[in-house]
Amino acid sequence: MNITQVLFWFLSVLAVGSAIMVVASKNPVHSILFLIITFFAISGHYILLNAQFLAIVNIIVYAGAIMVLFLFVVMLMNLNAESEPPQRNKYLLYGGTIAGASLLLVLVAALKQTGVTGQMIQTNGGSVGLIENLGKLLFTDYVFPFEISSVLFLSAMIGAVVVSKREG
């Protein structure tokens, strides 16, 4: 078991464990903090796959911007474990858990023997995920979607302002 496998298992256990804690914890602030841990673990996986650009973008955009926005909204609403709406319908709780677990079981069973099984992926090597390659591709082949995404951001910004503006 070399260092890559050790890191893989450590990051996987960290990601799955904190993802479970996101769903299980009562306090919304704790959920958000566990989700930040999950995103850092996923960024660690990106670094392990040598996708350096995406690892940095994941930390900046998800852990830095999106989760701070979530934390801001939760603290603005002053939500805590007491104000958390409890799931009174126990059947829904058990049914949802069983449904999700069954989906996992079916997908794992179906994908266990597919054609890609056993194909190795290149870890800690390769130049696919470097900024040089992705930047060149983004500004040549994908320059039109890149510009469209700026229009999307503008419309999202205007939409957020319009929706959250107090009626007056």
């Binding site: 893989f8 990601a15 992926i121």
Partner: peptide, 30 residues
């Protein structure tokens, strides 16, 4: 590292997300 491990890890995270959407009632957690 075989591709299977990553497929199953991503599936586990996805299914945990589905369980959260189905069982929780807080809109922010969903």
């Amino acid at each position: 590292m075989p591709i299977n491990y990553y497929i199953f890890l991503a599936l586990a995270l996805f299914c945990i997300g589905i369980i959260g959407v189905l069982t929780r009632r807080n809109a922010i957690i969903i």
